[in-house]
Write a protein that binds this DNA or RNA. Structure first.
Lengths: 230, 230
DNA sequence: CCGTGCCGTCGTGTATGCAGAACGCCGGAA
DNA sequence: TTCCGGCGTTCTGCATACACGACGGCACGG
């Protein structure tokens, strides 16, 4: 399920540059292209069996999204935000999602609320079965339900962009011991607050959720960079 | 003072496509290119005395920023968000700036605080002299001081993007009767809260400021679209 | 042995050419 | 008069060609 792009060129037949941009974005978000990897126009063109032109346009589209970094005469690489930047992005994302949750609590329609319940039930089953891959996908869908429920397309747009940008660094975070179960509990708390119409509580629950996510990621990142610690 | 672009290709010599993108962005933000205006690649290429290629890349860079809307085989036009979308963007911008102000209250350095004071003093003089053009520019600088003071580059990035996207629709708002003086008073309230380290108050002051800005704009827009009302 | 300048190679930046799609116009029919 | 279908124009999308700039290795000098 490709997230709605900021523009809406989705209805007309997408052009090749757009298809390539979408593919590259997916590859980056999914981790198939590692942060720091060089994006050579010529080889990418060969890989996609097109000329350099659409590849260039795809890279130019991706650069403003922050997924790739472009240096004027030195080519593009998959973005590698330093730890500082990542922390800043987590802070902003927490606030964006808190904002979305608050709006959800106030403005969600009954249908949307039912959808949220269904999604939670679905994810509860995955937690029981230990289906990490399924949970990961359902997690994205859950947060997108929150964006949609905020009834604010612009908020949804930048929250989605932020989420995508952080995705490569959150990928493994759900593998932490017991993280999936805790994550689900946090989701339940969020939904409960929203269903009760308690905007402040929903926002606080979402801030806490993102905060835990970040902490878990930081802990895993540290464990990976120096596994030699006593 | 061009706002720092999301990426940092500013240090190396900018390429022509980037220069054109910056120029087009300025033209749109300043209102020289009206929302809805067609952006024809060929004529733009002639205008800038280059071939179509850098123009195309510039447009491709601008599309994800939301300043221009691109429809796959039908060209680009200067973006025309409907009133609904604009309202949503104002809501998000209020929260983003409130977030920045809260961080400022907590984390601004003494130098940054002095800079804020200087800017306010400067703008007070402009209010006295009725220098609307100068005030407009100083206003942008003021808000950028807040972004910088938040010590969160990502927040600064998306706040700047949002501000730019709204700029064409806020352009005339300062011309409303007495708006400049009121705006300055709101700025003073914001700075006072920040200097006292009162994060919540600073955030609230900024929310109120943006809210008034939006209301003023809406009132002016309505007055312009139906000046026939009794 | 190390620092420095030169040169070859690679890759990006820009220009140009061609094909396909979308839009507008015009003529014909109901 | 109004609606519909065919045609031409115009613009975008993509491919290809060329030139400038950047990086790496090498040789020379200190």
């Amino acid at each position: 399920m490709p997230a709605a792009s900021p523009q809406e060129p989705s209805k007309p037949r997408p052009t090749r540059a757009e298809a390539i941009a979408a593919q590259l974005a997916d590859d980056i978000v999914a981790g198939r292209l590692r942060p720091g990897a060089a994006l050579d126009e010529t080889s990418l063109a060969a890989h996609f069996a097109v000329s350099r032109t659409p590849v260039r346009e795809a890279l130019r589209q991706l650069a403003p999204t922050g997924l790739v970094q472009s240096v004027p005469r030195r080519g593009c690489v998959v973005a590698v935000p330093d730890a500082n930047q990542l922390a800043e992005m987590f802070v902003v994302m927490a606030e964006l999602e808190a904002m979305a949750a608050a709006h959800c609590a106030m403005a969600m329609t009954p249908q949307e609320r039912r959808g949220l319940e269904r999604q939670i039930a679905c994810m509860a089953a995955m937690v029981r079965d230990g289906d990490v891959a399924g949970y990961r996908a359902a997690n994205v869908a859950f947060h997108h339900l929150l964006y949609a429920g905020s009834h604010n397309r612009y908020l949804a747009e930048i929250a989605t962009a932020t989420r995508r940008r952080l995705a490569p660094f959150r990928a493994a975070q759900l593998e932490a011991p017991d993280r999936m179960r805790k994550s689900h509990e946090e989701h339940v708390a969020i939904v409960t607050a929203i269903q009760r119409g308690e905007a402040a509580a929903a926002a606080a629950a979402l801030r806490a959720h993102i905060d835990v996510t970040e902490r878990t990621w930081v802990a895993m990142a540290e464990a990976r960079t120096r596994p030699d610690a006593a």
